[in-house]
Amino acid sequence: MSHGTRLRAALAVAALLAASGLVAGCGAAVSGDGCAPPRQGSASAGRPTRFAINHDAFQARHIGHTADGRQFFLTTPFDTGTEEGGGRLFVALYLFDAAGRFLDARIDDFGDDAGRAAERERAYDKKLKGLGKVTFDRIEVEPFGVERFGMTFGLIVSEPESDDDIWWVTAEPGDYMAFSAPWDCGEYDT
């Protein structure tokens, strides 16, 4: 499935996520200093081993560093399911060491029950408070993937599907954040 197809599917559930109260904004490019993409074929356009995520008021509002130097990303992945249903919402806390190496994924599954929004918010708040004193700021981490609940979670590398395509790192499931080179830019598309 192409990035564009996944992005359209992700936008289809934006209303569901917004209703959960866990998403501040969706459907737009989130930009900082206007990083220019590298030229096709340049070394910085290749497969990323590490990439940056800038702190912002949207999907990256709860990223940063713990008092002991670890990096974290607290987020709300989702699975759109099918037209017949089966979509699911999650709360995920991803932890990295100070150098950005993946350490752990703590993920809760809340199904598709809209009545569990308060429970999801409590779980989200509990994960955030469980980190102790934190600083919300830019992180630089490696892509990773873990299998949970029958699907892949994480910051997943997608290789180009054609000569005209580029490398991506997407927040999965849900493809709700998409990063491209330059990998030190920290900007993403939603």
Results as ranks from 00 to 15, higher is better:
138 R>H: 14
131 L>N: 11
58 F>S: 05
131 L>T: 08
74 L>K: 09
40 Q>I: 14
1 M>G: 13
4 G>W: 09
6 R>Y: 13
19 A>G: 12
123 A>V: 08
59 Q>E: 07
49 T>K: 07
9 A>S: 14
19 A>D: 07
176 Y>Q: 12
179 F>D: 02
115 G>D: 04
138 R>T: 12
183 W>K: 07
160 P>Y: 14
45 A>I: 08
158 S>Y: 15
129 K>F: 05
130 G>K: 14
145 G>D: 05
54 N>W: 01
111 G>V: 00
61 R>A: 10
46 G>K: 10
19 A>M: 10
95 L>P: 08
102 F>Q: 03
40 Q>D: 06
130 G>W: 12
114 A>D: 10
104 D>E: 12
84 E>C: 02
145 G>T: 06
95 L>E: 10
160 P>I: 14
109 D>M: 01
115 G>R: 05
128 L>D: 14
141 V>K: 07
176 Y>K: 12
59 Q>K: 02
157 V>K: 05
177 M>W: 00
159 E>G: 06
141 V>L: 12
162 S>F: 05
88 R>M: 03
142 E>R: 05
54 N>L: 00
37 P>L: 05
121 E>S: 04
177 M>I: 01
16 L>F: 09
147 E>G: 08
66 T>I: 06
180 S>T: 13
121 E>N: 07
46 G>R: 12
40 Q>C: 08
43 A>E: 10
116 R>P: 03
132 G>L: 13
98 A>G: 09
17 L>W: 03
137 D>G: 05
25 G>S: 12
80 T>D: 10
111 G>Y: 04
133 K>C: 03
106 R>N: 15
93 L>I: 06
86 G>P: 05
23 V>F: 11
104 D>R: 07
39 R>I: 08
113 D>K: 06
149 F>M: 09
67 A>P: 11
38 P>T: 11
30 V>H: 03
